[in-house]
C-alpha cells in the first residue's frame, strides 16, 4: 500500500513540474501587468496541438516540436497583448477577466470547430519506456519533461534577475512611470512579458501530451489549476509557482487515489478559499496582495 502512495507521489511530482511551468507564465503575466489571463489554459492547448499536428503531419518526434511550440506561442502571445490586452492594462481588473474570457471562448471554440472534440493521443515507440527504480515505475518521457520544466523555470528566474531585459520587466512591474523615465518602452515590455508567459505555456502544453490526450476543451481546467498554484505559491512570485505546482501535483495525485474525485475537488477549492482568506500572499508569503 505504501508503495502505491509513493508511486502516486512520484506521479504527482512529475505532473507538478508541468503545473509549475505554465503557472509560472500565468504568475508572470499577473505580476507584471495585473492581468488575470483566463485564456491561459487555451494557450497550453494550442501548444499541445502544435505538437500533435507536427507529429502526425510531419512525422516529427514530439520533443523536436518543442521549439516550434515555443516560437509559435511567443508570437501569438506578443500579438494578443499588443493588439488587445494592452488596452486593459491600466483599466479595472474586470476588464482583463472579461477580455481574456472572450479570447478563451474564441480560441477554444475555433479549435473545436476546426479539429473536433475527438481526443488525440501522441504515442511514440518509446512512450511506454520506464525507468525501474526501487520497485517504482518512472516513465522516461515524464521524467524528461519534468527536468525540462525545472530547467526552463530556472532559466526564467535567471533571466528576470540577471539580464537588463529581466530588470526592465521587474521595474515595469514595480513602478511603471519610473520605468519609462529610465528609457524603458513599457508597451514593448508588456508584450514581451506576455509573449514569454505564452511561450513557456506552449512548451508545457507540448509536454502535456505525455500525460493526457489532446482535445480543444482541455484548456479551462488547466487555467483553474493555475489559479490554485499561484494562490498557493504567491501571485507574481516565480519560485512560488514551482512550490505551488509541486504541491498541487502531489495533492491532486494522492487525493484522487484516496477520495472520490468530487470530494477531493471540493476540498481543494475550499482549502484554496481558506488560503485566500487567511494567507493571500501564499505559503511563501511573497505573493502580491492588493
Amino acid at each position: 500500500m505504501s508503495m502505491l502512495i509513493i508511486q502516486s507521489l512520484i506521479n504527482g511530482i512529475l505532473m507538478g513540474g508541468i503545473y509549475a511551468l505554465y503557472s509560472a507564465g500565468f504568475s508572470l503575466i499577473f505580476g507584471v501587468m495585473g492581468v488575470v489571463n483566463i485564456a491561459h489554459g487555451d494557450l497550453l492547448m494550442l501548444g499541445a496541438f502544435i505538437t500533435f499536428w507536427m507529429f502526425i503531419g510531419l512525422g516529427l518526434d514530439p520533443f523536436l516540436t518543442l521549439p516550434f511550440s515555443v516560437a509559435g506561442l511567443f508570437v501569438l502571445g506578443y500579438l494578443m497583448q499588443r493588439l488587445a490586452i494592452n488596452r486593459v492594462v491600466g483599466a479595472p481588473p474586470i476588464m482583463s477577466y472579461i477580455l481574456t474570457f472572450g479570447m478563451h471562448l474564441m480560441i477554444s471554440n475555433l479549435a473545436l470547430v476546426a479539429w473536433t472534440a475527438d481526443p488525440r493521443a501522441v504515442t511514440t515507440a518509446y512512450s511506454g519506456a520506464n525507468l525501474a527504480f526501487l520497485g517504482l515505475t518512472l516513465p522516461w518521457i515524464k521524467l524528461i519533461t519534468f527536468l525540462i520544466s525545472l530547467g526552463v523555470i530556472g532559466l526564467l528566474y535567471w533571466l528576470l534577475n540577471h539580464s537588463q531585459t529581466g530588470r526592465a520587466i521587474q521595474a515595469t512591474a514595480q513602478d511603471r512611470e519610473m520605468a519609462r523615465l529610465t528609457g524603458i518602452k513599457v508597451d514593448r515590455i508588456y508584450a514581451l512579458t506576455f509573449g514569454l508567459g505564452a511561450a513557456i505555456t506552449g512548451l508545457a502544453g507540448s509536454m502535456v501530451v505525455a500525460f493526457q490526450d489532446v482535445e480543444p476543451g482541455m484548456g479551462l481546467p488547466y487555467t483553474i489549476i493555475a489559479f490554485c498554484v499561484v494562490v498557493l505559491g504567491g501571485m507574481g512570485y516565480i519560485p512560488g509557482a514551482l512550490i505551488g505546482g509541486l504541491i498541487l501535483g502531489i495533492v491532486g495525485s494522492v487525493s484522487t487515489m484516496l477520495f472520490t474525485s468530487g470530494w477531493s475537488i471540493a476540498i481543494t477549492f475550499f482549502l484554496l478559499y481558506l488560503m485566500l482568506l487567511f494567507r493571500p500572499a501564499g505559503i511563501t508569503g511573497k505573493g502580491i496582495v492588493e
Binding site: Q164, R167, Q170, A171, T182
Partner: peptide, 18 residues
C-alpha cells in the same frame, strides 16, 4: 522612487538601460 524590490546594484544597472 527607487525600484523597491530590486537591489541597489540592479537599480543602478537599470539606469544604464539604454
Amino acid at each position: 522612487r527607487v525600484f523597491p524590490e530590486m537591489t541597489c546594484l540592479d537599480n543602478l544597472l537599470l539606469g544604464a538601460y539604454l
